[in-house]
Amino acid sequence: MSAQMAGVTRKPIAKLRSMGGGWLEKVCLGLLVLFVLVALFAPWLSPQDPTYGELGTGLVGPGADHWLGTDQGGHDTFSALIEGSRTSLAGPLLVVLVSTVAGIAIGLFAAWRGGWVDTVLGRLLDVVFAFPALLVAILAVAVFGKGMTAPVIAMSVAYMPYTARLVRGLAMQEQARPYIAAYRVQGHSALYVAVRRLLPNIGPTVLAQSSVNFGYALLDLAALSFLGLGVQAPTPDWGAMINQSQAAVLRGQPLSAVVPAVAVVVVVVAFNIVGENVGDRLAGRKT
């Protein structure tokens, strides 16, 4: 039995590996792994304390002391980039985790119950859809105050309908297949069939969508920090770094703003490419 369980957990990884994909996707996947590793080991990797600003060495160019220069306040940009990857990636990760779990629960419930439950949930999702994620997040900040918590909760709610609608559609399609009917006829409970049997069959496609969502959530959270509503200084964050470097850009020394901006773009694009390619290939899955 344990061998079977191991087979089930090992399979997605082996499947991903066997799918391979183009060089672009491999590069993007490599970049994502690199960023995750950097975020995990940030305190050991960053050469200096990014919260320590030496006013005498503000806005110096790249050099041996500061590989990517410093910002206006003399903070080391390279160290801030590395330390900032933690908050910049943890925020979207939370958003994606919460919105995916909630979206799966709602989508699966709507598809399984069908009828008026499905209709009511569908209309409610439409209402949530109508609010742009960023707007909801700004509202949440206005009500609950600055910081990470309010925007993350607000954006989890705003991103949930995307997953819920996808799950509902996939589950409806999958439910029509006779293997689901066979499980029911065998006497399995509805909950068991929906969660343990149907969900794993649509899981990979849902995960692909979630990884695309991750990119957008990162972008939105960075935008919030840039507006000064998200992560607050001195906590290093890519969006906040761009915000603090506005003056530097005006003084013709944009490096300390360009570095975190490039990091945001690279991670968002990488997540989109990996997510969409995996999703595309899974869409034509199964024989």
Partner: peptide, 17 residues
């Protein structure tokens, strides 16, 4: 235990996973 069924399409009636 009363009634079981075998469906028409053998390609969709088994869980592919």
């Amino acid at each position: 235990k009363a009634v079981q069924i075998v469906f028409q399409d053998p390609y969709l009636s088994l869980d592919g996973r």
